[in-house]
Nucleic acid binder design. Sequence first.
DNA 1: GCTTATTTCAAATTATCATTTGAAATAAGC
DNA 2: GCTTATTTCAAATGATAATTTGAAATAAGC
Lengths: 213, 213
Amino acid sequence: MKRKRSGAKKEKLLAVAGDVFIEKGFRDATVAEICARAEANISAVNYHFGSKEALYQEAWRHSFTESLKAYPMDGGVSKTAPAEERLRGQLTSLIQRIADENNKDFFIAQMEMVNPTGLLQEVMKSELIPMRQQTLALVRELLGPEATEQQVDYCEVSIISMCVHPMVMQRIAKRTGDKDMPAMIGDVTAFADHVVMFALAGIDAIRRKGSKP
Amino acid sequence: MKRKRSGAKKEKLLAVAGDVFIEKGFRDATVAEICARAEANISAVNYHFGSKEALYQEAWRHSFTESLKAYPMDGGVSKTAPAEERLRGQLTSLIQRIADENNKDFFIAQMEMVNPTGLLQEVMKSELIPMRQQTLALVRELLGPEATEQQVDYCEVSIISMCVHPMVMQRIAKRTGDKDMPAMIGDVTAFADHVVMFALAGIDAIRRKGSKP
DNA sequence: GCTTATTTCAAATTATCATTTGAAATAAGC
DNA sequence: GCTTATTTCAAATGATAATTTGAAATAAGC
């Protein structure tokens, strides 16, 4: 048999593992299936990665690295642009990142939150916390100095939810090919525009209301 | 040993199973642990329910029935009330329902979407589809006759996301007791009010924009 | 109290997987 | 070409957990 360049099998295992973990979750994904799809022997996982757990962690980290490279958190909008534009950049980048079916990290992170294996805890914080801080700062700026911290928190979670939840549901719908759960968001950019408009209107309403109820 | 009334063990198993399935997910929950917590013998699950799968389905249905009884979909607001008030009713009821830690059905449904066992597919549709229709109708009414179906869809998914996603995250934070993921929503009613205001402002902005981009 | 239908129990059985093993095949350095 | 370090392979091993079994205990009807 011809030999591929060194490390080719390892990379293929990493990619295939991401797919299988997304389809089945950590526990229901079997080493046997991953190896079969990667056209590798059953012992390839343990040889290359040491264990199924280590493969899971490496697959996530690999996917996460690629993901942030393709979709920077600020969406490529300059720090000096108006706050509205920076919000548009952040949200659009986030939405596109989740929509991109090559990116597995965000979806795996969702599974991990709902159904934790505990294997990604530390590593996921390095993703979520800085992302949250950046949005919080932006929302604080848009709400103005009068806003309470609770108003900032509530707005931030509302806005991020409008991005994350629909896109995750969308991927679920695509995965199952379920006709009762139609893939509603055809044009990701149009949806991102909708979210930005909705979010800015909401922020504005909270700001007008003021901090005293 | 004293005997309890007939069916007591079965009910206890049902309740305990819900807890364990929420904590661990279907696959990681073991029959052994469920029986131990219910102070029942290892064979109790198979005796009473036939299989772990059947127990899972019955536990969900049991929880769902109780859930809808406690939190009707319209939130108890009259059909003749203004649309804004009906929206407030729907969203507040939904938020409270997810927040209530006695209710397991919604959280199990989330796990099931992200990480499907396939065991609840049909049964979950009976929950989600009518709920969605009711919100769609209300949003359509609030957006007015000019609105496109896409605008209605986008607004509905945005609004439901603002309710579901934060509350699910909140329950996850409580489950793990994670200090990096603080339970942010202390006062559920205040949060519901925030979401209603945010949603109405968003709808209004979309309506003012009109259907032509 | 006696009989019968339920319910509980501990141990045995099966099934599914992750992991290990040791031999065989292959590439790379010399 | 020879040697050594990697990599692949099929089969064996071990661990975990669902399910089955058959006997024992218990409640309920009479």
